[in-house]
Design a protein around this nucleic acid. Structure first.
Lengths: 366, 366
DNA sequence: GTCGTTGCTGGTAGCGCTGTCAACGTTCCT
DNA sequence: AGGAACGTTGACAGCGCTACCAGCAACGAC
């Protein structure tokens, strides 16, 4: 008795080929490069596969072809809203393609990242998406030696490993501070948490902008390594006020902190923006809805994820993008919390009605 | 010349076995069931593997053993904070285990879920985590026929496919309403968005509690299929007020909506809780930090994900939990936004100092 | 008519690992 | 002392697919 089915009852390629009256290898080709088949065989295999409900065995394919159809993604956090937007973009772009996403969480540790990278690379992924540009030397070497396309996301900088998509956090922070200057603010504090490399670069941008204006004061900067939260924003702002009660603005390294600062102002009955202006970073959805509406720096997170995955897939399939480094820029979204025009300060009647004035800036990096 | 290495330069199990002076199959056993080896061979294989930097080829393993070490996870959204907490738990529990997570997004569509399920099952996952209890009949049949452990998460209900971990959204909503009753509120509105099955059950719980008290009014319920957001909370609340200006409390199906309602109250200069009490759902971090602090129903999302994955892994390895259905319960976290005691209503000086009174309830389901 | 050339197809031989089962040595029991 | 029982080990034969190369027909150029 010839065995028609595998033990598990699954349909194999051989069965499809038999039903279609072709050799297994021809059926195999149908799934990988249908154009290589004559139209007649193509349709025969197609209908045979559909009739039998054939699903390829990816393990066998990976073993025989010596490569997988897995895209590895290394991100530092699953909690952070920012990364969930990026991830959504990545998953959306991978959907419908043959590639599946393998996600790992580095927890903001470059050592953990190195470990995970080694793990990924051992499985010969089709491509890799890694967060940021601050890998260990060892990681960097592995990435450069990897024989698959790689996209670095979230920021741009010199010496891309391969492809890169993001924006300049440094320039974005400078733009936020410039906006506050333009509104007449001078004593501008900085509130930052987690202090991962990107937040650090926002701080650097803030510091340089303040120094350029001759206004930098170390005591205006409050940071912590603690993970960010709304509550933490209030606590850090409290510290900041204790050091410098005369602030007239706060630049927050992200929107959660900004919301915490807003609540703390409300608690202390400090008028926003009359007494203190607030600017956040990322432009999460709630910023437009707060009272007063909160100014923020908009970043294109979903688009970043989606484009990164799309670029990667193109590169995997041999079509390298003509633009391997993509600057997605940012926009300062000016809202009530930092507006000096009194007319903008009265609470709008409905959240959606709050006027947003945008200041678009492609981040320039050199 | 004997080939020592695979084409790709990778070390194979055979090399390790040769260096250790054992047969390949013995080396294989070392990685899967070290206890089966004598101590001498075990240490020999171990050091040989380390010396060569051996990494198993998972594709070959999967092909030969007819099973994968992949845990499939089906969740309806990557955006929703709730799921990022659950996911974090799942990833944390899987870390260090041999299993890797394969994530797919159903986008709240049970048809999409069915499609993804079919895809997953074809690859013979080691286990499956699916969201909720509202699968299509077809999905349900596939799950029941699957020869791997399955955990349903996010809620509990009758007829688990296999294991189940969650809580009763219905009971949680009833508890929230009961809390508002206890604070003296009677004209309680409901605001809901997305209206996925779990939000629907929260609505059902609200309706039943209101009906039990003889206070239900259809016009006090405002819902939409639109995805949730803070802004939407304000908009829905605006609708609700237009229908019924005399509300004295609002129960929001989630915290984003609650925050939107709070902002809208501030915009309209409606006192919270003096004029209107607000209760949210999920107890996201910012609820404790808002002004006034916002009452919410705490759910154990991280723990749910972590426990689900841990249970699943145990079951995969043959140790079925004695409790296949786990009710993680919920807690009504009472804060200023729904407190009738005037002393609680004055703004606390610091966010963390806000007193939280907890009402713990294991959800009873029958 | 012959000779490439191109397009399509199939045979063979693995990819690296594990399931199965038999065989071996050792211990323990009667 | 004999044999059963156990623990440990290895040989063999694939898992389902694809890389590689050979073969064959059809076609155009000379």
């Amino acid at each position: 008795m010839g065995r028609k089915r595998t033990k598990s009852g699954k349909i194999r390629l051989a069965e499809v080929a038999e039903l279609a009256g072709v050799s297994p290898i021809t059926a195999s080709r149908f799934f990988r490069n249908p154009e290589a088949l004559s139209v007649a065989k193509r349709t025969r295999v197609e209908s045979a596969a559909k009739e039998l409900g054939y699903v390829p065995n990816l393990a066998a394919r990976a073993l025989a072809s010596q490569r997988t159809e897995v895209i590895g993604v290394l991100i530092p956090s699953l909690t952070n809203n920012v990364f969930s937007d990026v991830l959504r973009g990545i998953y959306d772009a991978s959907e419908g393609s043959r590639y599946s996403i393998q996600l790992s969480n580095t927890r903001y540790s470059i050592l953990q990242e190195e470990k995970l990278l080694r793990l990924f690379l051992a499985q010969k992924p089709a491509g890799l998406i890694v967060t940021g540009i601050d890998q260990t030397a060892e990681s960097r070497a592995m990435l450069e030696a990897a024989d698959c396309p790689i996209v670095q996301i979230m920021e741009i900088g010199p010496n891309p490993v391969d492809m890169m998509i993001g924006f300049s956090h440094y320039d974005a922070a400078r733009a936020a501070v410039a906006h506050l200057f333009a509104q007449g603010h001078r004593r501008i504090g900085f509130v930052g948490a987690r202090m991962d490399p990107r937040v650090q670069r926002r701080l650097d941008g803030y510091v340089s902008a303040m120094k350029d204006a001759g206004l930098f004061e170390q005591r205006h900067v409050v940071t912590t390594a603690t993970p960010t939260s709304v509550t933490l924003g209030g606590a850090l702002f409290t510290d900041l006020l204790a050091r410098e009660p005369d602030l007239d603005a706060v630049f927050c390294a992200n929107d959660d902190l900004a919301l915490g600062v807003l609540f703390e102002c409300r608690r202390r009955e400090i008028g926003v923006p009359e007494q203190i202006a607030i600017v956040g970073f990322n432009d999460l959805e709630f910023m437009a809805s707060a009272v007063p509406t909160l100014t923020s720096v908009r970043t294109n997170r979903y688009e970043m994820g989606k484009t990164a995955a799309a670029m990667l897939i193109e590169a995997i399939e041999g079509r390298r993008p003509e633009q391997p480094v993509l600057d997605l820029g940012f926009k300062v979204i000016e809202r009530q919390s930092s507006s000096s025009r009194q007319s903008d300060n009265r609470p709008a009647l409905s959240a959606g009605a709050a006027p947003n004035k945008m200041v678009a800036l492609p981040s320039s990096h050199d």
